[in-house]
């Protein structure tokens, strides 16, 4: 059974990695989301899933019944989902801002950071001061 799960998770992760290799930022973000989903599933599987009774304690008991499900992975996955969600939202907002500012999301065309102090083109003295240098 675990093998089937593992195959499924690795398929999701492979799709995520494939998307991550794309040149388009939005596809990369989809890739990160898919990998994140697959990692969350791995955490879930690491807690041993199966037909177990839910981890509920009756009033007065101090220990879980033998063989009940592991409650920890849920807490971990929940934390990971929340964190992943907030980061992905940030990156999507960043992508939107980038698109509005630079007019493209093709990573080949995004090279404003690389251009600073590049060894390949000598600086032109008359050139307007770049956006980055204006702030001081």
């Amino acid at each position: 059974m675990n093998l089937i799960y593992a195959a499924g998770f690795s398929a999701i992760m492979a799709i995520g990695l494939y998307l991550l290799l794309s040149r388009h930022i939005i596809r990369m973000i989809y890739g990160v989301m898919l990998i994140s989903a697959s990692v969350n599933l791995v955490i879930f599987l690491a807690g041993r899933i199966g037909p177990n009774p839910p981890p509920v304690m009756m009033l007065g008991e101090t220990m879980l019944a033998d063989g009940s499900a592991n409650p920890l992975p849920q807490a971990l996955v929940l934390t990971a989902i929340v964190i992943g969600f907030s980061l992905v939202s940030f990156v999507v907002a960043l992508a939107l801002k980038t698109y509005r500012r630079l007019g493209t999301l093709d990573s080949r065309a995004l090279n404003d950071a690389e251009a600073l102090g590049s060894p390949f083109e000598p600086p032109r003295p008359g050139k307007a001061r770049s956006d980055e240098e204006r702030d001081s």
Partner: peptide
């Protein structure tokens, strides 16, 4: 991205994607 300049947006994008991958 505190200044929201073009170079910062470009740099932040690379930073974000690769560091997200690293934490995953």
């Amino acid at each position: 991205v505190i200044d929201k300049s073009r170079a910062q947006l470009d740099g932040a994008m690379k930073y974000a994607i690769l560091n997200l991958l690293s934490t995953l």
